[in-house]
Design a protein around this nucleic acid. Structure first.
Lengths: 152, 152
DNA sequence: GTCGATGCAAAGCATTTGCACAGAA
DNA sequence: TTCTGTGCAAATGCTTTGCATCGAC
């Protein structure tokens, strides 16, 4: 699942199968969620949704994103700033995050060697990894030359 | 720094150097903190401190743990249960966490291969790792035989 | 006697929930 | 018409802060 259209289809199925309802709000939140691209916070989502559908409040966005997670179209990520962020579900590929402390950009990475080491570490303790969280916080080696430096 | 005595010494220095004061509460919180051994939450700390010094409230424990972090005798860790946990600072050695979803135990691990891969991943993007968070959530392969299984 | 620390209650944030009403099916 | 979804406000859980008082120096 990559595109908005696929997400809409999957959500529709989930709604059907669980006797839920298709609403304008859910449509708009899903479109905004895909338009924002990834790592969107509730505040960012709400701000965008309100430009399309004034009157929507936090409760609806929170409930809707929870529904998206249950429907499998979104993932929940908790970084260190106290805000929950969401990203579109992209099939089975797993990835972790690399966060630039200079410009706040969030990169994604996936490393088979690290994944393998994790299994080994677990195996030594009679454990089997279920999921993990791996975030690297880093700074530009280019200093002020960071091409996408953002205001602090 | 490993022992309570060393932590007491370091805290005393920090207090001296910053014109702060040595108090009974800070003594007790530090002892309880070391007695609990690691990954203690504010609630756990407060409960223990109150057996020794009734009347202490959340505010004091929160403020005291923040002081310990500044003094370098404690580290702050945020796992996924919404509670901040603290662990004694053990010199320069860094470690990550392996959390058993069956019995809630928290293991520590450190893996040079993973650390090296992290640097490589950063280098490819002109970044230099500053710190990271790596948590593996796992289940016992022993099933109900998990020797230290705890109630859910 | 100063000035930082404490304890309590109130305030802050992010998130969740109760409830009356609106709107899909 | 029925029952879920929505919007608002109040409630919650964790953490921080304001303020009068306490206690270390």
């Amino acid at each position: 699942m990559h595109s908005l259209a696929e997400a809409q289809a999957r959500l529709a199925v989930h709604i059907r199968e669980n006797g839920l309802k298709h609403t304008r709000q859910r449509d708009e939140v899903l479109e905004v969620f895909y338009a924002l691209g990834g790592h969107a916070s509730i505040d960012e989502l709400l701000a965008q949704v309100q430009t399309r559908l004034p009157g929507v409040g936090y409760a609806t966005v929170y409930r809707t994103m929870k529904l998206f997670v249950e429907a499998g179209v979104a993932h929940e990520r908790k970084f260190q700033d106290g805000q929950t962020r969401y990203e579109p579900h992209m099939g089975d590929d797993h990835h972790d995050h690399l966060i630039c402390l200079d410009c706040s950009r969030i990169f994604e990475f996936e490393d088979p060697i690290i994944e393998a080491r994790q299994s080994d570490i677990c195996a030594g303790r009679h454990l089997r990894p279920v999921h993990h969280r791996h975030e690297i916080y880093a700074r530009c080696t280019l200093g002020a030359g960071c091409p996408d430096r953002l205001p602090p």
